[in-house]
Design a protein around this nucleic acid. Sequence first.
DNA 1: TTGAAAGCGCTAACAA
DNA 2: TTGTTAGCGCTTTCAA
Lengths: 335, 335
Amino acid sequence: MPRRSSGRVTLQHIADRVGVTKITVSRALREPHRVSAALRLRIESAIDELGYIPNHSAGALASGRSHSVALLIPSLSNSVFSEIQRGVQEGLSEAGYQVLIGHTGYSILEEERLIDTYLSYGVEALILPGTRHTDHACRLLARARVPVVETLELTETPLDINVGLDQHEAGVAMTQAFLERGYRRVGFLGARMDHRAQLRMAGWETAMRQAGLSAQRCLTTPHPSSYRLGGEMLGSMLERWPDLEAVFCCNDDLAAGALFECQRRRLEVPGALALAGFNGLDITEATAPPLATVVTPRRRIGDVIASRLLARLQGTPLRPSSENLGFQIRIGGSL
Amino acid sequence: MPRRSSGRVTLQHIADRVGVTKITVSRALREPHRVSAALRLRIESAIDELGYIPNHSAGALASGRSHSVALLIPSLSNSVFSEIQRGVQEGLSEAGYQVLIGHTGYSILEEERLIDTYLSYGVEALILPGTRHTDHACRLLARARVPVVETLELTETPLDINVGLDQHEAGVAMTQAFLERGYRRVGFLGARMDHRAQLRMAGWETAMRQAGLSAQRCLTTPHPSSYRLGGEMLGSMLERWPDLEAVFCCNDDLAAGALFECQRRRLEVPGALALAGFNGLDITEATAPPLATVVTPRRRIGDVIASRLLARLQGTPLRPSSENLGFQIRIGGSL
DNA sequence: TTGAAAGCGCTAACAA
DNA sequence: TTGTTAGCGCTTTCAA
């Protein structure tokens, strides 16, 4: 009788039942072709009968491989990340990796905590939203010698693999779309104001200044985006700048909320006020009128992350690199 | 030189540096009060210097405890689950548990796969969306002897802990709200048609039949819900049943999409058509008019799950139980 | 307050 | 094709 034991079925139990040693059972699971067919069948049925579940910790400890990858996302309620997740998941799970999802709530401190946690879980790669991290997080990542993907935005100084799009450029492009259509008093509405929102706003400012126009009509808040907030903030903007002709919102949620507020106020969109959002979520095509937006290649980002990461995990040495997947301006009917 | 070694910093490295044994370092981390203050400080600075990250697998293997709990959610893009997650996370992480999130995509087969995976990770509890599982999943859960929470809906035969609300009753209540306001030709619009959507629809049918009314005006699809789909399906319903007076949608996304379609068709809501959704998401309060909906206590569900689970994990033996957290009907302005 | 010994369940490396 | 041996990094148990 062992001194300590969990009571769970182990490889040894299967081995005893079949009359082989545990390494053979282990092989039957991991390299079935290296075990004779007859034996394999007996092992499989014993596993089934006894309800064996492998102990991942033991395997990871012995092999030094966890077969898992961490994907950190800022928000669980934002479809932007769910599409990236789908691409990553599909690519990596085919290759035998488990994707562990972590939720940062847009906080780089929480990100740091999760990086620590997942490194202690022995993940073989980390996928991070954004390119801003705490110093401590960067130190952890450097020491871990594990592939790291930074995504969504681009940086000149990637830690390792960087896949995303130029948020500033997208902000410029959307603003120019307003200007090309003759709008001059174009405001900016921003919430949460994470790094990407800041970049989009900076793009708006750049484009306005370049056109010799005022970038004063700007309202931001650190609060999280929501439809309701979009409506409320649009109200404040209209009060403060009654001459407003158009509003570029830092994301689709705010833009939709702003559109609803216009409907309540019987303000024609785009007749009395033009609107645009950012991301190209489903809602922008559903509203009346459809919303102008910057369509970001989220699914593709997920796919590309998976493929770059797999190359890296399978040994292809890559030096730090940035990959710009671009964006598209969709005018919809609100501009 | 050891035959195998990961090159990572281990407890032993810290111990060597400080001049103690590894068990003392281990204690300094887990039971700091049992190590002298001076030593503790030296250990802490060595940990910092060398960048030690504990190996979770080794700890879990040795102690038989993983300090982690799995939370499976059907969709990453549905705010319904993000609020539950927040409650669960807050409650459990305070108590030292790591919450591992898994994504089932509404598939009980995928759920089964994730249950298997997370059991092999040694999670100390599982939180599942819904009360329907594959037979194999039930067998896995039974053998695992680990607390299980089934949530969102209620069942007469909980596996263990069941926290949710009566989806059928909510469907009945919302339908009755239509009837009380004089609507008679009330249709039902459903997408995805997971078990909860089915229960809501059954509630609608029950209420209509009890009132002696026809439950024919019903359109469903297995496709995932989206705003766009809500609009398209409403179009089909109006074509098929031009006499439709009201539509109860199985969730808020569909209802919002239906509202947008009404706006496009210049159909007054609720004048020409009344609408209602389900869940009470942010969007229902933002649209013009605000949407009638069934407000579900999602945050509270998360909180209650955490507290029941902690009690259970800390040893309080509970027999299988169902907890009904109820719902509220909010009329908004679309009814 | 600190340490020695053993073992958690598995896999790598080598052997037959 | 199957087995033997050692050890992954940590914690438990018992001892000092």
